[in-house]
Write a protein that binds this DNA or RNA. Structure first.
Lengths: 135, 135
DNA sequence: TTAAAAGTCTACTAATATAATAGGGTAATA
DNA sequence: TATTACCCTATTATATTAGTAGACTTTTAA
């Protein structure tokens, strides 16, 4: 399941997508409108900024805004960034690969199955962008 | 990601699948062969028994064994039982449904997207059984 | 030039979930 | 009837997630 943090991130990003190219938006405004704990949201937005998804402006009239076209920001990217691996096993993760302990990948039925699940999931998440979330 | 517990469960079930119809298998044997903490494994097997996946025999010559044909036990069933929801959001889960807080399902782009992911995942997990894990 | 606005950053605490352990209880069988 | 082996509840340990606190820095506009 996606963490609460991830859900907050998507809410904030959706909000910013709706305001794309309309100037900076205050953290406090997003927090209030989307009912996200202010300080927690600060952390999340900062993380998204450090990952080049968002940009910000300080001082009066400042705030956060999308750094690029929401149609170019994949849902999969956000999930990986805030939630972590998309795959169901570390040994089939593309971006967070780790060997499973006491498990021989070559002879693991689960391994192959979970590759299929991963691919089916990515087929969807890699194909959608923030723009698609705003219906 | 699947929890360690889930991975243990699949290892144990795979082991029992290979020994289907060959009599009871000791917990201690599974624990040793699959390198699973004994007491933790006891809990897992008991849970699987209470869910009618396994059956057991007490006393000398006892142990655990699959209650039915491994070709009839779906991977999805085990995941739900030991790991919990398969869906990425509570509001799109078939077996563990819960409303997301501060979120209107009718107007949530994530909601629809995650239904697609869920369906793609289930397409695979509901179609595979323990037998398929033993290659 | 300076005060207020607004994001930045580090650290901490609380809550929850996961993983693992302990140990006595109960049923079956040789 | 003793031994084997599963049954069951409770506890502890560890890790992750969620949320909070507060001081700092940059920017802007009066």
């Amino acid at each position: 399941m996606l963490s609460a943090k991830s859900q907050y991130a998507f809410k904030a990003l959706t909000y910013l997508t709706e305001r794309y190219n309309k100037g900076p938006v205050l953290i406090s405004e997003i927090a209030k409108k989307k009912k996200i704990p202010l300080k927690f949201l600060e952390n999340i937005l900062l993380e998204l900024k450090n990952a080049d998804i968002l940009d910000s402006k300080k001082g009066k009239g400042g705030g956060y805004f999308l750094k690029k076209d929401p149609a170019k920001i994949k849902v999969a990217t956000i999930v990986r960034l805030i939630n972590g691996p998309i795959a169901m096993l570390p040994c089939v993760s593309l971006y967070f690969y780790e060997r499973c302990k006491n498990c021989d990948e070559k002879n693991c039925g689960l391994h192959d199955l979970m590759i299929e699940v991963r691919d089916a999931t990515l087929e969807i998440l890699e194909g959608r962008t923030l723009k698609d979330l705003v219906v």
